[in-house]
């Protein structure tokens, strides 16, 4: 790959997905895009770049999907799910006792392990949520990934990562070499395609937002912009959950960390968020992605 081709792909990915690759990620691009180029009948990265420059819409989508990482497993990092069970839900159950409804958003739901892990946590709470309306919305950039999440079918390898064996037996049905999550849990989740660079106000407000391990791929301005828009979609007493390597500290005052609960944040006064300017340059990105 020539330096010119690399620079083109870097800028292309930045503009189309917000993915912010540093100058030394040639191996990453090659490992993800070479197989894709071959599959499309192209000779290599050079020809792929030519096709992108010519504006091949299908290829644009394929390249963005291939470059967006989807490493995920059930109950990933464990601690956030302990917080969900021991801190978040008890507070939500108390605060929403009147209307008996809770809305949860997995903003980088990927292949479904995170939303299904939350669904299992909620099921395990049993009687505490009887008669409650529980909504989980799982969004992801990639249509292919969403289809997999919707089907809820996992390989033997996937169900052995992070998932306690009792939960596997209780909530999955085995079909040959694969395991499918029960219809009752699948019905708890709505899957929607969303690029976090785009407007997401149509999803309404949430009591809990899980937005883990996705913002690390964005540059600082984009992160700030997303935090500020997340702040408008969260109830004033709601919770934001970030990944282990992520924080709002030093980026925005729309959220504050909860002491002794790593990864857990509360919104500050939402009016502070509205005053922040929207990220310049968002408009042309939206135009490119609108065709997806």
């Amino acid at each position: 790959m020539t330096p010119t081709e690399y620079e083109y792909l870097r800028k292309f990915l930045k503009d189309n997905s917000g993915l912010d690759l540093s100058a030394d990620k040639q191996y990453l691009i090659e490992s993800r895009l070479l197989p894709l180029a071959r599959k499309a009948g192209l000779s290599g990265i050079a020809e792929l770049v030519q096709k992108l420059q010519a504006g091949s819409r299908q290829l644009i989508t394929d390249v963005v999907e291939a470059m967006t990482t989807n490493e995920t497993f059930f109950f990933r990092d464990k601690v956030p799910f302990d917080h969900f069970r021991d801190t978040i839900m008890p507070e939500v159950i108390k605060a929403r006792a009147g209307k008996r409804s809770v809305r949860i958003w997995c903003a980088a739901g990927s292949t479904g392990q995170e939303p299904y892990s939350l669904a299992m946590c909620l099921k395990e709470m049993g009687a505490a949520l009887t008669g409650w309306r529980v909504e989980i919305i799982a969004t992801d950039l990639s249509q292919e990934v969403l289809e997999k999440a919707k089907a809820g079918v996992y390989s033997q390898f996937e169900v052995q990562r992070g998932l306690p064996i009792q939960m596997l037996v209780k909530y999955f049905k085995q079909t040959g070499e694969t395991w499918q999550i029960n219809p009752e849990l699948r019905a708890m989740i709505q899957h929607r395609q969303l690029n976090l660079l785009h407007d997401f106000s149509q999803f309404g407000t949430f009591d809990v937002i899980f937005c883990r391990n996705v913002l690390i791929y964005f540059d600082q301005d984009t992160k700030i912009n997303i935090f500020n828009r997340l702040a408008r979609q969260i109830e004033p007493d709601g919770f934001l959950v970030l990944g282990a390597a992520e924080t709002v500290v030093g980026l925005t005052d729309t959220f504050r960390p909860i002491p002794d609960r790593r990864g857990l944040y509360k919104p500050n006064d939402p009016r502070a968020a509205v005053a922040k300017p929207v990220l310049a340059g968002a408009a042309p990105r939206m135009a490119v992605m609108a065709g997806r």
């Binding site: 497993f73 464990k78 390898f157 052995q160 990562r161 992070g162 306690p164 064996i165």
Partner: peptide, 10 residues
């Protein structure tokens, strides 16, 4: 290794 480590942690 990942599966063994996950299950042993579990």
């Amino acid at each position: 290794k990942d599966i063994i480590a996950d299950k042993f942690a579990e």
